[in-house]
Simulated assay, not measured.
Amino acid sequence: MSRLYIYDHCPFCIRTLIVAHYRQVSDLQQVVLLNDDEDSCHRLIGRKMVPIFEHQGITIAESMDIAKLLDELGEGPKALRPLQLGEAIQPRLQPVQAHSWALTYPRVTRIGMDTFATESACDYFRAKKEALLGCSFEQALAETDTHKAVIERVLAELPPLTLPSEQGDTLSWNDVLNFPPLQYLTLVDGLTFPPRLQQWLHEVAELGGVELYFERAV
C-alpha cells in the first residue's frame, strides 16, 4: 500500500491527486494532514512540506516528481498528453499572485476542509498567511472587490485552453499544472470566469476526480 500525504486545499497536492485519479493508480491511501501537523512531515521528510509520497520504502516530496511517478504507476487506459508551452498560464498568474492569495487564504478555512478541522489548524494557517499577505484576513476580505477586479481581468486575458472533450476526453500535463491555481479561485463567491474557462475547469475536475468549490464559495 502506497500513501499520499496531503492538505486537501493545497494546489501542489491537487496536481498529484489529478494524476493519481486519472491514471487509476491502485492501492493508494490518501492521508489528509491537519495544517498544524508539523510532526508527521518532519518524521517523513525532515521538514514541513506536502505532498509526500511513500512507495516501496521510498519517500519523496516534490509535487511534480510525485506526479511523474504516479503517472508511471498508473494503470488507466488514457495517457497524459504532452506539455504545450503555449498553454502555460503560470507566467500570467504569477504577477497577480498576491491578489489571488488575498482572495483565497481568508476563505479556504471556512468551507469545511479536513485540513482545517481543528481551531488550532485554522489559527496556524492564519498566522502564517497573514504574515505572507502583510495584512489581516479581515482587511483582505474588506478589499475583495479590488482583488477580484485584478484577477477577473487576468482570467479574461488567458490564452484559450484545450478542452479535454476536444481531445477524446483526455488530460494533458498542462491541465495538471494549470488546474490547481484556478481551482483555488473557485473559492471566491461571485468571481467571474469566462465561459470556456469554466467549461475547461469542469471537464478537468471530472476527469481528474477532484472538486470545484463553486457550491461552497464564500
Rank of each mutant, 00 (worst) to 15 (best):
L4R: 11
Y5P: 07
I6Y: 08
C10W: 02
P11T: 10
T16C: 06
L17Q: 03
I18G: 08
V19W: 15
V19L: 12
A20Y: 09
A20R: 04
S26K: 11
L34I: 00
S40V: 14
R43H: 11
L44T: 11
I45Y: 07
R47M: 09
V50I: 02
I52W: 04
F53M: 04
G57F: 05
I58Q: 15
I60P: 02
I66M: 15
K68M: 15
L70I: 09
L70W: 15
L70A: 07
D71G: 05
E72S: 13
E72D: 14
G74V: 02
P77M: 00
K78D: 10
K78S: 07
A79M: 07
L83M: 12
G86Y: 12
G86I: 08
A88R: 15
Q90W: 08
R92C: 04
L93Y: 04
Q97V: 04
A98N: 15
S100A: 15
A102Q: 09
A102Y: 00
A102P: 14
L103K: 10
P106K: 03
T109L: 08
I111Q: 06
F116K: 06
T118P: 14
T118R: 11
S120V: 11
Y124D: 09
Y124M: 04
F125N: 09
R126T: 08
K129A: 00
C135K: 14
S136Q: 08
E138I: 00
L141Y: 01
E143N: 07
E143C: 01
T144W: 00
T146E: 09
K148L: 08
A149W: 00
V150G: 04
I151N: 09
A156N: 13
E157I: 04
P159K: 04
P164Q: 01
S165L: 03
S165W: 03
E166G: 01
E166I: 00
L171K: 14
L177F: 09
P181S: 07
Q183L: 10
Y184F: 14
L185G: 13
V188N: 01
V188W: 05
T192E: 07
P195F: 13
R196Q: 10
Q198F: 11
L201C: 08
L201V: 11
V210P: 15
F214S: 10
R216E: 07
A217L: 13
V218L: 10
